[in-house]
Design a protein around this nucleic acid. Structure first.
Lengths: 165, 165
DNA sequence: GTTATTGCAAATGATTTGCACAAGG
DNA sequence: CCTTGTGCAAATCATTTGCAATAAC
């Protein structure tokens, strides 16, 4: 899959008359090396481990490029920084549940949901392009027991804790 | 309705051992005088028309208070500033469609949607607290004719244009 | 050789905060 | 009075941008 991403980015780059660079390659690898959500700063740190000479500015610029190319999506988790989600290539229509207790993010897909929003959108006179559902919820495990080690969530993908300023 | 908001805020203020002030009253009036979405800056300007001596800081602080009291909701419209939505008292479960062409925001309610997300949430082992669905779409009118004076949208509420930086 | 790209540091812009003064209860 | 609220200006902090140097093609 990683390879396919590179290919699709190359295509995009060629199409727009842009250029392949070492930095972009490193950054793309870092972005798609995990299925975790991340912030620009976190990505910057991850990139720095591999390639010491890559600037924050280039990370930001490349993120913009990936989003424009449709390979990466910005999502809103309710905090002050933009979160990036690399999983839309695999699951183009997934949505997010955020645990208010621990901040864990659970991705889920639901076919009915897509149909429903398509319906609503057309009824209003529009053509649906994309949708984002964010559910905020509390963890049942936490209420019943002490902690929030939600097993289901652990099995699913996104599981990053986030701090509000 | 405006009166009821003041009453609910007073209750909240008393409960928390806070104080009623002229500024808070002015700001609350400005917030709930229209059903339009707004940014902190826009509200600040609106408040300034009535009451010249109210600072931006107080506007921000009061917005925080209203959100905490559950009278006002922050929503994400995809731009860089927080948008506030005063319509959740009347329509506690409404969601938003954003027209990509013109930035217009249309509010809509859908009972099925609520049931569906409640279902999904429980299936994942959580207790739903709140949800936010944002649909991004293009205007059919625009594609067929020249402009985007979508009649349906005009009839519904939120209709503020927003600028990306 | 052109033209896009990068790194750096400075700029931006929304939001927050420290503090001395004002005002609610 | 005692504590919370306010205005002001300065501080934050994520993100963007101008620019000279560097590297694709």
């Amino acid at each position: 899959m990683n390879g396919s991403v590179q290919a699709r980015l190359d295509e995009f780059i060629r199409h727009k008359g842009l250029r392949r660079t070492a930095q972009r390659e490193v950054i793309v690898k870092a972005v798609f090396s995990k299925d975790e959500h991340f912030s620009a700063e976190e990505l910057f740190e991850r990139v720095r481990m591999t390639c010491a000479n890559t600037s924050r500015a280039t990370v930001y610029r490349t993120l913009g490029l990936l989003v424009e190319a449709g390979l990466l999506r910005e999502i809103d988790l309710g905090d002050d920084q933009t979160t990036y989600d690399p999983n839309f290539l695999d699951k183009p229509t997934h949505n997010h549940l955020v645990c208010i207790d621990c901040g864990r993010v659970v991705e889920f897909e639901d076919a009915q949901l897509g149909e429903l929003t398509a319906c609503v959108t057309q009824r209003l006179g529009f053509k649906p392009i994309r949708q984002a559902l964010k559910i905020e919820a509390t963890c049942e495990q936490l209420r019943n027991h002490g902690r929030c080690p939600n097993l289901i969530a652990a099995r699913l993908s996104g599981k990053r804790l986030r701090k509000k300023r």
